[in-house]
Design a protein around this nucleic acid. Structure first.
Lengths: 148, 148
DNA sequence: CTTCGTGCAAAATTTTTGCACGAAG
DNA sequence: CTTCGTGCAAAAATTTTGCACGAAG
């Protein structure tokens, strides 16, 4: 929690360096990302920010999200079905586990990933700078509800 | 090449089983997927199919692509920026290497991936049924053009 | 023949943009 | 004060849908 405040301050400092204005909306949106473990969608962020700032427009959310993406403070998780979700807690790419039943997304991690990237680099000649790894499956609670 | 014809026939048979009609447009779209190594987008497929069937509508391409997705014969590769590309040659999920400069996509593979999936399954309790793995980087030819 | 796929256009969705006002610096 | 961000609405881009005609089975 102290870390969260610290990170918030860091990001605000970063925005200031960029000569971006620190507005209540931007702070609110930032806080939503830092407080949520749920990898929210644009719409969900919009709903949440409207709780405290009811006049906030969807356009502002899009603009702010794009800004945060640009400065590398949130990570966009692209779905095959077109919907995007965002991860504001760990903006550096890392594996996600996605429940196809309830759409819950949790974070995952593996030292094997770096080995895989290195291997791919060696085999292809590509210079790899980022990755996106998603596993799809059924989360434990959905498994309990309905075995398939 | 013989394999390709075989696969085409297999898919057509599969469509017939489903009591889907075998139309020239569907065959043309199928062939485009089977012949292309470029992981084409919907728009690109539409352009290509229009070469031989100029009246083909974008709607038909969307409908056919969705059909092929449903029966598991093409794989949708979702981008973070919203654009979708398709892989008709290896419809089972596998890693892709994507050049962020020229958007070329090549296939990759690694035995480590299965190990990673197994590990994630163990750690999370998820039952993993699919995955999506993309590495972003600069391909060899773009590296030559401009070192960055 | 009967049913389904196509093509067109319209609709629905999602994301971006232009502009005037108000707020941050 | 000056400039930038906001909110609104309009626009743009993308994907889906309804319907009548023509083609596949």
């Amino acid at each position: 929690m102290a870390d969260m405040q610290e990170r918030l301050d860091d990001i605000i400092a970063k925005l200031r360096q960029r000569e971006c204005r620190i507005t209540p909306q931007r702070i609110a949106i930032l806080k939503i990302f830092l407080h949520s473990e749920e990898h929210p969608s644009i719409e969900q962020v919009h709903e949440q920010v409207k709780v405290h700032f009811p006049t906030t427009s969807l356009a502002t959310v899009y603009k702010t999200v794009n800004l945060l993406k640009e400065i590398g403070e949130i990570l966009e998780i692209g779905f095959a079905d077109g919907s995007n979700r965002y991860d504001g807690n760990r903006p550096h790419p890392h594996p996600h586990l996605i429940c196809t039943r309830c759409r819950t997304i949790i974070d995952s991690d593996s030292p094997l990933l770096d080995a895989m990237a290195a291997e791919a680099e060696r085999n292809s000649g590509y210079r790899i700078v980022a990755h996106q790894v998603q596993f799809f499956g059924i989360c434990p609670s959905c498994q309990r509800i309905r075995e398939s």
